[in-house]
Simulated scan of single mutants.
Amino acid sequence: MSGAQSIDCHLKQPVLDGVRVIELAGIGPAPFCGMMLADHGAEVIRIDRPGANVEEQQCDVLLRSRRSITLDLKRPESIEIVARLAETADGLIEGFRPGVAERLGLGPETLMQRNPALVYGRMTGWGQEGPLSHTAGHDLNYISINGCLAALGQDGKPPMPPLNLIGDYGGGGMMLAFGFVSALLAARQSGHGRVIDCSMAEGSAALMAGMWSLKHNAMWEKEPSQNLLDGGAPFYSSYACADGKLIAIGAIEAQFYARFIEALELGDDPLFAAQLDQENWPKMKVRLGEIFSSAPREAWTALLQHRDCCYTEVVTMAEAPEHNHNRARGSYVESGGWMQPHPAPRFGETKVVLPKMWQRDADRENILAEVGMTDPDWITTS
């Protein structure tokens, strides 16, 4: 070798290997947090509830790679099992309304007396306090009080629900996973755990930080669907092709815009001369819509894919695993016959924990043995 240091190419263990997490069964954001932790090597023990609706689902990707035990939390014996498990764990996550965990005897004060280093993650829509904290809601409600939903309106129409990606998963589960790992690092340094108050309303508000920057710099002043990133800009939008399939253009920077209009032979068209002239955006958008509707998506991909002008096809969920980029990276994997996203993000030279599909109550006997208990008749109910 010419003086260069050799690189250790041995696969390293997953980044959360050795971390144990107790997850009290819920839906949406808390299970997504559990999935993220399990995807990266944490041992996640899910406490399932008897007769929960999730049992009826053939496949739940959010619950992959868990260990599972079903417990009736109305029974004191079950509460003791969870408390014993918490003594052995690095953290616990729950998605109850404020006060429910305390009434069950599983609140942070109780469990952290038994395990002072426990990281206790709380996932709610509104937070543990505040006028709305005890009221019902879903993703759409949580993103409606922070400007997020309003910004998604299109052409004067009420905004369409953005699936439940922003509140449940981005501002909720992902934010809780970040909080959990941050608190875990602090606990390992200090020996003291933390309580994480993760509010989907506040988490999704944090996702709007960039929009606040645009607002403060007079770049987000018009009605929804008339601004730079909300579909108002003709060079940052999606279009229908002749075959009904869709494409996306994200040519914001001047160099990408120049390549884009050059490829479409619009470089000499005065309508497209001033990229940031918002007065012309509606006309530019109509013209581009007419152009793209004149040929099938395959033709536009052949013309634009290699122009480095921020062009992509808009693929469906069914098409996504077969997209050439996704296939090359292995961005989707199959487990138990079910196609699903590969764990993300990736870590260099790190062993990937491939998903294993969740099986309800599959680990009951082993989990009980780990806390010095056997399997009594009352442990599960139908």
Rank of each mutant, 00 (worst) to 15 (best):
E221V: 07
A177E: 04
K245R: 15
G99L: 08
D197G: 02
A136C: 00
K12V: 05
K157A: 14
R346K: 13
W220D: 01
L368K: 07
R329Q: 11
M36P: 01
F96P: 00
G153C: 02
G193P: 05
M174T: 08
I367L: 13
S225T: 08
A369D: 11
M200N: 02
G125S: 09
M175I: 04
G121R: 04
I291Y: 03
S238A: 11
I291T: 03
W281F: 03
Y236V: 03
D60K: 00
S65H: 10
V195Q: 09
E221K: 05
F180K: 08
S382Q: 15
P282E: 06
P270V: 07
E129N: 11
V61H: 06
K351T: 11
A136V: 09
P159T: 06
G330Y: 11
N227I: 00
D363C: 09
V333N: 08
G231T: 04
M357E: 11
M175N: 12
R194P: 01
L92A: 01
G91Q: 02
W358C: 07
Q305L: 13
P159N: 05
G3A: 14
D243I: 05
N115Y: 12
G172D: 05
G99T: 07
F96Y: 15
L184S: 07
M317P: 03
G3D: 12
R67V: 00
Y257L: 05
K222G: 11
P108V: 10
A205H: 06
P345L: 05
M284G: 08
S182P: 03
L118F: 13
P161S: 10
A89Q: 05
L163F: 08
L271Q: 06
R49Q: 13
V100R: 12
A206T: 11
N217H: 15
A201K: 00
D308P: 04
L63W: 06
L354D: 14
E109D: 15
H216F: 08
E349H: 14
G127T: 04
A233E: 00
N53Q: 12
P159Y: 05
A201W: 00
P224D: 09
A318H: 09
D230K: 01
